[in-house]
Design a protein around this nucleic acid. Structure first.
Length: 613
RNA sequence: GGCCCCGUAGCUCAACUGGAUAGAGCAGCUGACUUCUAAUCAGCAGGUUGCACGUUCGAGUCGUGCCGGGGUCACCA
């Protein structure tokens, strides 16, 4: 919005000429005028009071007079306390709409083609995607869209955690208890089938553990390791991991499998490929339902070895150190962090190791110096560590790494826990939300001459629109409390509300037979209309901010405000039945721009706009 | 315990990064469909911004200290 810069410039000049005070144009603060006052933009005068040794009233009079005289678009000013409120001419607003129509407010190119890699979703392959993934995926997807829109060259990627103990649990469990069950034979969605065996493993382990607790061996362990005042019940609650590692038969078998996997054992690898394949098929279905996809997927199984050699190289270069038992560590205490292990004493890699390798391979593939990791905030510390290590290794992309951290999604009953079966599966939720949209549509009846297929598509867009908006409108840093039973609202500040504004506009244009022309010269616009034009020209600024902060919620709030403005306008004024040809032309153009902007902004959030609803 | 995040209306969220009398939606109560789609609009009611100091013309926003919630400090991922 260049005219704001011009105003700042003018203010700076006035201060210089009339008060001999040097204030850079960039220091001039211009706000939106509060609705209860006359005007559209406001210059805050307080900061100049001290520097000019003048009072706000005098300052305001001087600056305001200059602005009105020097700037054709400013019609009037008033001063309230230390605020200089500026009103713009009718001509100005007509011009602004004209510029918008001409596409002048379309280009945002802060990225200038710079490459950015956005990692999101990043699932494990032992169970289906759940509500938490949905937030992750929506955030990642829309952040990528926003970056693309603002001129970055974006690569969308996921890292699939396809190896390790978890998937081996599913594999072993299937082998022991599965009787050769397949997605075909069971009719289950394939990722759910794998998840089923993961849960089954846990169940069996629990049984095994409980039985073991009654043995002499367990009693011995309790006597040796329990602190004086703990009951055996409490002790064994905390001992579960140790049991799995040191005493469990199932645990032994899982580890055995993991070792065989690392040894490239044919049978184990075949099982692994098969079951991972099931999971990928299932994920793909879910991704498609959500309308997202990736330019490239990375697999931990392909990258962990690279990480390992990076660690070894770093150790040789003296950046890391080796303990007597052979494990390799990094000392990040100078950076205010801790000592972290990078390779286990048996030479196998840990979580960090893989992330090092993944980052490096990605850089080799894409030479993107910016990489954004969309990962939950429980891993804040992990990423701090990772980024520090990259700096230590002096990687060219080290400074461009960013952890887009977001809060967990909780249920009204508390945290989601897979062990307690309180996890909300992504597919189940999507179905529920679409069902909600369907019953809403049925209640309303009449979707105006759509075929059955089109209706189904619209219902899906509405349901998903509600879900996506609900999640994306919240600032990523905050935790979300999500009640899947009450599902998602379709009224008020919601996706469907915004979709509805768009649909109303589309409906108008369906009824308007003439070509859209710009014959609105001389039209005197009303307050609502000025406000709407003003909202429209904010769009590029909003995009810039959303891109700078990696925050889709800014776009979400903007589109709601715009839709709200439109609904009100629609209610107050006739468009097709406007009082004059100019008024009609102005309003049609305005509506068209609003529809385009709503479509653009909602698409950034991954929300589709139906033509009717 | 150390470090990190969060705390705003009954509920879900805003507040242009320090600016005016803290705004929306939901839920509750009123009113508006023979009018371009009522998934809409208008109104009422709802607040000591967790608490206390401090910084300054000005603090929900910055600082310090408490209180409450969450996370994290693994040879788990």
């Amino acid at each position: 919005m260049n005219f704001l810069k011009d105003i700042s410039q003018q203010v700076s000049q006035s201060l210089k000429e009339k008060f001999a005070c040097d204030v850079a144009a960039s220091e001039v603060l211009i706000n939106h005028t509060k609705p209860e006052f006359e005007g559209t933009y406001t210059v805050v005068l307080f900061p100049f009071v001290k520097r000019t040794k003048s009072n706000p009233q005098v300052l305001g009079e001087a600056i305001g007079t200059d602005l009105v005289n020097q700037t054709a678009s400013i019609e009037n000013f008033n001063i309230v306390k230390g605020f200089l409120n500026l009103s713009f001419t009718n001509e100005f607003w007509l011009n602004q709409l004209g510029k918008t129509v001409a596409g002048e407010y379309q280009d945002v190119n802060v990225g200038q083609g710079e490459k950015v890699l956005v990692e999101f979703s990043s699932p494990n392959t032992n169970k289906p995607l759940h509500l938490g993934h949905i937030r992750n995926i929506l955030l990642g997807w829309s952040t990528a869209n926003i970056l693309e829109k603002t001129g970055y060259s974006v690569v969308r990627t996921q890292i699939v955690n396809d190896r390790g103990v978890a998937i081996c649990k599913s594999m072993l469990s299937w082998k022991l208890f599965g009787n050769g069950e397949t997605p075909e034979s069971s009719g289950m969605k394939s990722d759910f089938l794998v998840g089923k065996y993961y849960v089954e493993f846990d169940k069996q382990l629990k049984v095994e553990y409980t039985t073991w607790q009654a043995t002499d061996e367990a009693e011995q362990v309790f006597k040796e390791k329990a602190k004086p005042d703990t009951t055996s019940e409490d002790f064994f609650k905390g001992f579960k991991n140790h049991y799995f590692n040191d005493h469990s038969d199932l645990g032994r078998q899982v580890k055995d499998m993991l070792l065989k996997w690392e040894d490239d054992d044919e049978e184990v690898k075949a099982l692994w490929s098969m079951m991972n394949g099931w999971v990928y098929d299932g994920f793909e279905v879910t991704y498609q339902k959500l309308g997202v996809g990736f330019d490239q997927s990375y697999y931990e199984s392909d990258t962990y070895l690279t990480g390992k050699s990076m660690v070894e190289a770093g150790e040789e270069a003296g950046l890391f150190y080796k303990k007597e038992d052979g494990s390799i560590w990094v000392d990040l205490e100078p950076q205010g962090l801790d000592q972290k292990i990078l390779l286990r004493s048996d030479g196998t890699s840990v979580y960090l190791t893989q992330d090092l390798g993944t980052a490096d391979i990605r850089y080799q593939d894409h030479t993107a110096k910016k990489m954004i990791y969309v990962v939950g905030d429980e891993q804040n510390y992990h990423f701090k560590v990772l980024f520090e290590i990259m700096k230590k290794l002096d990687k060219p992309y080290a400074e461009g790494l960013y952890h887009l951290s977001y809060g967990m999604v909780d249920l009204p009953t508390g945290k989601m826990k897979s062990r307690e079966g309180t996890v909300v599966d992504a597919d189940v939720l999507i179905k529920e939300v679409i069902g909600e949209a369907r019953s809403g549509a049925e209640e309303r009846g009449d979707m105006g001459g759509l075929t059955a297929d089109e209706q189904e598509g619209t219902i899906r867009d509405i349901g998903l629109g509600a879900l996506k908006y609900f999640i994306l409108k919240v600032n990523p840093q905050k935790r979300i409390v999500f009640d899947p039973k009450e599902s998602v609202d379709m009224q008020g500040q919601t996706g469907p509300y915004i979709q509805n504004a768009y649909v109303r506009i589309k409906s108008i244009f369906r009824k308007s037979e003439e070509e859209l022309s710009q014959d609105f010269a001389g039209y005197v616009c009303q307050d609502v209309e000025r406000q709407l034009v003003n909202q429209l020209i904010q769009y590029p600024t909003v995009l810039e901010q959303a891109a700078a902060h990696y925050d889709p919620s800014l776009v979400a709030h903007y589109s709601y405000d715009l839709a709200k403005g439109f609904h009100r306008f629609y209610h107050d004024l006739r468009i097709l039945g406007a009082e004059s040809p100019e008024a009609k032309s102005f309003r049609l153009n305005l509506s068209k721009q609003i529809a385009d902007t709503l479509e653009s902004s909602l698409n950034l959030l991954g929300i589709n706009l139906p033509q009717r609803m």
